[in-house]
Design a protein around this nucleic acid. Structure first.
Length: 541
RNA sequence: GGGCCCGUAGCUCAGUGGUAGAGCAUCUGACUUUUAAUCAGAGGGUCACUGGUUCGAUCCCAGUCGGGCUCACCA
């Protein structure tokens, strides 16, 4: 589909970061005259996909979409799984850790799957998890397995080249290593033909003409092995460069932890005869206390946690915003991202300048085709507040409250809002409810509450909120809650209501009490009062 | 030590080369028997510091100080 020239012109000028990155690629293809562009993301399959995996693929896709606006060249995104890597330690989250012990140091695709389920290996299982994960978000990508690529010989030519350039590669690698490691370092890692393990052993001979390496196997006997066809793999750093060279990768982003090594990968790639890809270094995520998020520490947020309380779009917005800043990633940032996403989405149709649209995150989140926004301006922050004050876990009750003020909204007409209502309720259940502090009523308060229950009992179920509110006032008109109105009549002090919320809802504030009772039900409310008076709400002291 | 990022209102953060903004918090007032899913308004910032470019800098450049992260043979 041809790109509108005005849109293309705007893209070429846009300051949004995906366009900045895409322009680097545009300069690259002009320089090389290449006919396609390959994006790559890397994945270490020793664990399960996580929020960083999502971020990397989402951001790479944003650059890819931006590039497509500037150039008609075809693009591909390759999600590459380094599944031939040896299993260095046994993951924590497997059912039977002892079961895996005999397979340490073997390529992940040769380790049996501890989860069962018909997968050929642990690596295959994790690859499948990755794909399922990416498919959930409808990413457009091609999956690649290192094991498959090595075995199929797709790296063979470059591996031979690496043998030819062995000394050059060593010259790049050795200065980056400590003395001890220098003595034994080899860019080639043979898979032992006898034990099946990935060996970290020095090379005794390298023969480019034969395509072989010679080394001591685990039992001490010298072995000469053809490097091709998956019999060997490369050490991490040369592996990056080799892969880029072999596949013609044009773009790969990575986290700051790779930054120092990137020039090394690049150098290897060039030694092997290909231009190094363009890079983009993004910041790592921090937890609430400013510490780096790591899987092993278990701090920060998981993607499941995010998606429990908010939708994918809000997470995509988080990923779009300022990739180069170390951003805190914890529960508190969720509501803001949800609401900002809504704002950006709402603004998009009103933006008539292409320049403005391309700067709008929703353009990047939706690949240039953001959906139409919903009417109504109910924010997630408001819904969270509502779930709290309404003290409910029932979507229908939430909607009842909503429709008192906005009668034209329905779950059917506003599915996105309806989803947010569900998220707000979960947030309430998990964060607000556990923090509730029910107070025991004093003797006098207990009397007042019993009177209230009795008074409510005089009303038929289904009474109007106003009628209920009147009863509540009537009962409250007693010591110490009375107050004289401006007109001289007897009123009820705010402390009466405060007491109700503290004792009955465990909150300092709440909804209009008559409305609450009408929706919660008179019988239910009386039951609630009964429990409170008996001290069951406050729990054991 | 190398690299990257940050330093804007009490807090969390937006922001643009042309006398500073939001949310929350605080305070004041309004909503006809006053509870906060409401509304109106107020206070509060030499935009870290010092130089430079400019008619003009919070924004660009250089440096200083302060804070954070990352890299040292794990991929």
């Amino acid at each position: 589909m041809p790109v509108d020239p005005a849109l293309r012109a705007a893209a070429l000028e846009s300051k949004a970061w995906p366009f900045e990155e895409a322009r680097k690629l545009l300069a690259r293809v002009k320089r090389t005259g290449q006919k396609q562009v390959l994006f790559e993301t890397g994945y270490g399959p020793s664990g399960l996909p996580h929020i960083g995996t999502f971020g990397e693929v989402a951001r790479t896709t944003m650059v890819r979409r931006a590039f497509a606006l500037m150039s008609d060249l075809p693009t591909r995104l390759l999600c590459f799984s380094d599944d031939m890597d040896g299993m260095r330690k046994i993951p924590e989250n497997v059912p039977d850790r002892k079961f895996l012990e005999p397979y340490l140091q073997m390529p992940l695709t040769r380790v049996p799957n501890p989860f069962g389920g018909g997968y050929e290996s642990f690596g295959h299982h994790n690859n499948a998890m990755l794909r399922r994960f990416l498919d959930t978000f409808n990413f457009d990508y091609e999956f690649a397995s290192a094991t498959d690529y090595y075995a199929a010989g797709r790296f063979d030519d470059v591996l031979i080249r690496a043998l030819e350039k062995y000394d050059d590669i060593m010259a790049v690698m050795l200065p980056t290593l400590g003395e001890e490691r220098q003595a034994t370092y080899s860019p080639f890692l043979p898979i032992s033909p006898t034990s099946g393990r990935v060996l970290y052993v020095p090379m005794k001979a390298v023969n480019p003409k034969q395509g072989t390496i010679t080394f001591a196997d685990e039992d001490g006997t010298d072995i000469t092995l053809d490097v091709r066809g998956g019999r060997t793999k490369l050490q991490w750093k040369p592996d990056f460069g080799m892969r880029w060279a072999a596949l013609g990768v044009d773009f790969e982003m990575f986290g700051k932890d790779h930054q120092t090594n990137a020039p090394i990968y690049d150098r290897i790639c060039e030694i092997l005869g290909a231009p190094a890809p363009e890079h983009y270094v993004y910041e790592l995520f921090l937890d609430e206390n400013g510490q780096k998020i790591s899987k092993s520490k278990g701090n920060g947020l998981t993607i499941d946690e995010w998606l429990t309380y908010a939708d994918t779009n809000s997470l995509a917005l988080f990923m779009y915003s300022k990739p180069r800043e170390a951003k805190k990633l914890y529960f508190d940032v969720i509501p803001r991202n949800v609401d900002e996403y809504s704002q950006f989405l709402g603004a998009y149709p009103k933006q008539f300048e292409l320049k403005d649209r391309l700067m709008n995150p929703v353009w990047h989140i939706h690949g240039g085709h953001p959906p139409a926004p919903e009417s109504g301006n109910v924010t997630f922050a408001l819904l969270l507040n509502l779930a709290t004050v309404a003290n409910t876990e029932d979507k229908a009750v939430m909607w009842a409250f909503l429709r008192r003020y906005m009668p034209d909204l329905t779950p059917e007409s506003h599915p996105r809002l309806d989803a947010l209502v569900g998220f707000a309720i979960r947030y309430f259940q998990d964060f607000v409810k556990p923090g509730k502090k029910y107070r025991l009523p004093t003797t006098d308060e207990a009397v007042a509450l019993r009177d209230l229950a009795a008074a409510l009992g005089e009303l038929p179920e289904g009474s109007t909120p106003e009628a209920i509110q009147l009863k509540v006032y009537d009962v409250g008109r007693r010591d110490p809650y009375t107050v004289t109105q401006k007109d001289g009549s007897l009123g009820v002090a705010q402390t009466w209501f405060n007491m109700l919320y503290q004792v009955l809802l465990g909150e300092e504030r709440g909804p209009r009490f008559g409305s609450f009772v009408a929706l919660y039900g008179i019988a239910n409310t009386r039951g609630l009062i009964d429990k409170a008076v008996r001290g069951e709400l406050a729990g054991p002291v």
